[in-house]
Design a binder for these strands. Structure first.
Length: 458
RNA sequence: GGCGACAUCGCCAAGUGGUAAGGCAAAGGUCUGCAAAAUCUUUAUCCCCGGUUCGAAUCCGGGUGUCGCCUCCA
């Protein structure tokens, strides 16, 4: 199993700290807004990482934090004129709802920043004692000049940072790259008591504290979007190293950006889509397919056409699953022979190569094709088994059964029986009219040797 | 200005030295009353120039283009 490690810029053999156990921490949402389609990428990708590690026999502990304290939340609370805690609660709930809609398995822990304030204060105290932090007028900063490897993760040098600083230097800081550990509270802001007065911790401290607390010392994988590399993750590493000279995590994984029609998503360009808006129009599996059809580290371009293409691709899996009558064969015994095992091995070696999900998906298509050719239902079981690892085919009952109430279902059956009568009489005009009318209502008929099937199309 | 990534068929995309996976779309055949589904067949020498090599999409150099990061954005 190889993983690309941002820290070394290389694919490395993955060796967990503890054999058979994978501990991972992925930076979660700041709950000041509904999350957007770009945020869905790390959620879906690391969901797959967890599922895959479990599939190959590991116990996985995944932590995804909730940042419920931050400038953006404070701004939102001022805009909407409601307390910060209410903002946090509202969007935390929305986060979980949207994750569920995207069929993302919840993490094992969802620590909230506000629940770890004391631990953060303790860490800052420790950093101050070790002379990695200094206080100026109630604000506390981390001193990057004292941090030996600062910039290693992001490949930046302190000199370059200084030269290229595009924001006017904060005069209180000793070095422009020094970052805030503790922020003095302004009027009306949420605040906690600390040795430096009333205030709140900075963002970079929470992840260090919560990851250590929940995952113990050095853990295996720290993940997030590539934009977090600098400064967030760099700063986490610096704090961890300064406090106990231990690595925070062994492997740093970062997913690439999502662009909209080639441009960065932003409110000013008016190309900002929330996940919940996208979900209103498209199936979660199509969205998942879209993300997983490209390697996680590459930038990915979002536009509606691509989601439509993805929907079509996913639909083809379901065509096969329907024709295989999956719901009826799913509990039947089956055995994998060498051919099945070969497909499985291809899937595993693709995933072992730094989570090459695009290749893994192509294996699913190979399996589908193999089933259609042989009608060997073991292929269907394999398709489901491997598809599940990528988070597909998790809700077969609903997808494959036609969810009309009994009366409507009977009416469809009735129309089909009329149509069959017309067909027998070679009254093609009426037979086609029934099929077309039903099609317009979203019900598709399909004639097979065993009779007429019908499906509700979304 | 500094650092970095990427450029493969109409679209999406895998492929890191051995002769271009897969998906979507399109065209044609089989099947079907016609459809749908399925199936078979067809469609690229990998941005440009130069180099290394028996051999390069894959390595090196030089262009061109796109994108990202450079203080709280996944």
């Amino acid at each position: 199993m190889k993983i690309y490690n941002t820290l070394t810029n290389k694919k490395e053999e993955f060796v967990p700290v503890e054999n058979g156990k994978v501990k991972m921490y992925v930076c979660g949402p700041t709950v000041y807004n509904y999350f957007h389609i770009g945020n869905a990428r790390p959620l879906i990708f690391f969901d797959v990482v967890k599922k895959y590690f479990e599939y190959i026999g590991n116990e996985v502990i995944l932590v995804r934090n909730i940042t419920d304290l931050d400038d953006k939340l404070i701004n939102r609370s001022l805009e909407e004129n409601i307390p910060v805690s209410v903002v946090a609660e509202k969007y935390t709930k929305a986060f979980f709802d949207d994750c569920k809609a995207l069929d993302i398995t919840p993490a094992d822990h969802h620590p909230k920043a506000t629940e770890y304030i004391n631990d953060m204060i303790n860490l800052i105290k420790e950093l101050e004692e070790k002379e990695f932090a200094y206080e100026v007028n109630g604000d506390v900063y981390f001193s990057v000049s004292n941090s030996k490897d600062y910039g290693k993760l992001s490949g930046k040098k302190l000199e370059d940072l200084q030269a290229g600083a595009r924001v006017e230097a904060n005069k209180q800081k000793k070095h422009p790259a020094d970052f805030t550990l503790w922020k003095k509270a302004k009027q009306g802001e949420p605040k906690w008591t600390s040795p430096w007065g009333e205030g709140r911790p900075g963002w970079h401290t929470e992840c260090v504290v919560m990851s250590r607390k929940l995952l113990g010392g050095t853990f295996d994988i720290h993940g997030g979007g590539i934009d977090l590399v600098f400064p967030h993750h760099e700063n986490e590493i610096a704090q961890a190293k300064a406090s106990n000279n231990q690595k925070l995590a062994n492997y740093w994984m970062h997913n690439g950006y999502l662009n909209i029609e080639g441009e960065k998503m932003s409110k000013s360009l008016d190309n900002f889509f929330t996940a919940r808006d996208i979900l209103k129009k498209y199936d979660p599996e199509a969205i998942r397919f879209f993300f997983l059809s490209k390697h996680y580290r590459s930038p990915i371009d979002f536009n509606e056409n691509i989601i439509i293409e993805s929907s079509q691709a996913v639909k083809n899996f379901y065509n096969t699953l329907k024709s295989a009558d999956y719901l009826n064969i799913k509990d039947k015994e089956f055995e994998y022979s060498e051919v099945h095992q070969q497909h499985k091995n291809s899937f595993i070696s693709a995933m072992n190569d730094d989570f090459n999900t695009a290749k893994a998906i192509s294996v699913l298509f190979d399996i589908t094709k193999a089933y259609n050719k042989t009608k060997d239902s073991a292929f269907i079981h394999l398709l489901i088994e491997l598809g599940n690892v990528l988070g597909f085919f998790t809700n077969m009952e609903e997808k494959l059964s036609n969810s009309l109430n009994d009366v409507s279902g009977e009416l469809v059956e009735l129309l089909i029986s009329y149509r069959n009568r017309f067909k027998k009489e070679k009254n093609w005009e009426m037979a086609d009219k029934i099929r077309n009318d039903l099609k317009e209502m979203g019900i598709t008929l399909k004639d097979t040797p065993e009779g007429t099937d019908w499906n509700i199309e979304k």
